[in-house]
Computed example of a mutant assay.
Amino acid sequence: MRLLARLPYDTVFNTVYAALKINLCLVAACLPLLATLALSGSSPLQSWPFYTALSALCGPAAAAAFAAFRALSDGEHHVARTFWTTYRTAFSRSLAVAAAAAAAVIVLAADFQLALGSPFGAVTPLLALLIALVAATTTALLAAEAKPTWKTTLACAYLSIRYWYLSLANLAILGILAAAIVAKPAIGLFLLPAPALYAVWANTRHLTATLH
């Protein structure tokens, strides 16, 4: 009973409530992509270049969620306001980062498909690593709120390679989240995004600590 009395119920409730609000904000911000996935009759894998390009719209949403996590860790519980303020102010920057990453992934993935089963099949591991590096670098740029210059991009790429285990963990978390959204939309959209992205943000904050 004494242990139960010591549990910080207010803190737990506020954290869970904040996570739910962030999930709803993410759903609203990514609605164009989600609506297209729901209404399209084709498999995302069959039309992967189109969905990869459209996923650039999730860049501002991810940057806003990372800012909300930062505010929450500082004791600010008005996460929805922080989310939409950051979404508005960082929209152009984060969309440019995500769009450039989507374009790079489309080119690399197309080359990967062409190389499979061809005399150039030996380059497929390198192409796969480059795709992973683009995803890790993009995540670092969005989480660090860094201005997308060549210097910061190269720094984030270097740090993503140096702390490869954190980058690998982030990619695994994002992959599981994407699979959950496709397989179980209700759970994947309304329960998992905030915890998953928080873990990604926490890893990336350590990864990019030297940029601040």
Rank of each mutant, 00 (worst) to 15 (best):
C30Y: 02
K21T: 11
T124H: 04
F112Q: 06
I106K: 00
S94K: 03
F69L: 08
W164L: 09
A115F: 08
K21Q: 14
A115I: 02
A136V: 12
G75N: 01
R93P: 00
L7K: 11
T85K: 12
R2Y: 07
Y165Q: 14
P44H: 10
A128C: 03
L108P: 01
A202C: 05
A64L: 07
S73H: 11
A80C: 05
D10G: 15
L3E: 10
F69H: 08
G117C: 06
D111M: 09
V12S: 00
P148L: 04
P185N: 12
L129Q: 12
P193H: 13
A132P: 04
A157P: 01
A179H: 13
L141Y: 06
A98H: 07
Y163A: 03
A169L: 14
A179T: 10
Y158G: 01
W164H: 11
L33A: 14
A209F: 05
T149G: 15
L33K: 12
C25R: 00
A63I: 00
A65I: 10
A18R: 06
A28D: 02
F91V: 01
A186L: 15
M1E: 11
M1L: 09
L20D: 09
A196E: 02
P119A: 05
G75S: 05
H77Q: 09
A178N: 10
C25V: 09
R205I: 00
T153P: 06
S47D: 12
L72P: 03
A53W: 08
S118V: 11
V105N: 04
Y163M: 04
A103N: 01
A64G: 06
F83S: 07
L211P: 05
R2H: 12
L20Q: 06
H206W: 12
H78T: 09
F91Y: 14
A67L: 00
S160E: 05
E76M: 01
A143R: 04
L95A: 13
T86C: 14
L57W: 06
W150Q: 04
T153V: 15
M1P: 05
A28F: 13
L45R: 07
S47N: 13
T15V: 10
W201D: 02
L54N: 08
I187Y: 14
G188F: 07
R162E: 12
A136P: 10
A38V: 07
D10C: 01
V134G: 02
F13N: 01
L116R: 15
Q113M: 10
T208E: 03
L159Q: 12
A135T: 03
P148A: 04
V182E: 09
Q46H: 14
T139K: 02
A100L: 14
V123N: 10
T153D: 05
L130E: 09
F190R: 05
I161L: 15
L207E: 14
L174Y: 07
Y198T: 02
I181Y: 04
L39G: 05
T11W: 12
A183Y: 06
T137E: 11
L37I: 06
A5P: 00
P49C: 08
A80S: 15
A144L: 07
A38C: 03
K184E: 11
A101G: 13
A53Q: 05
V182M: 08
A122H: 12
A143E: 15
S94D: 15
F66R: 06
L127S: 10
Y198C: 02
F69N: 01
L177P: 10
L192F: 15
H78E: 15
L159F: 11
A169N: 08
A64N: 07
R93E: 07
L168P: 00
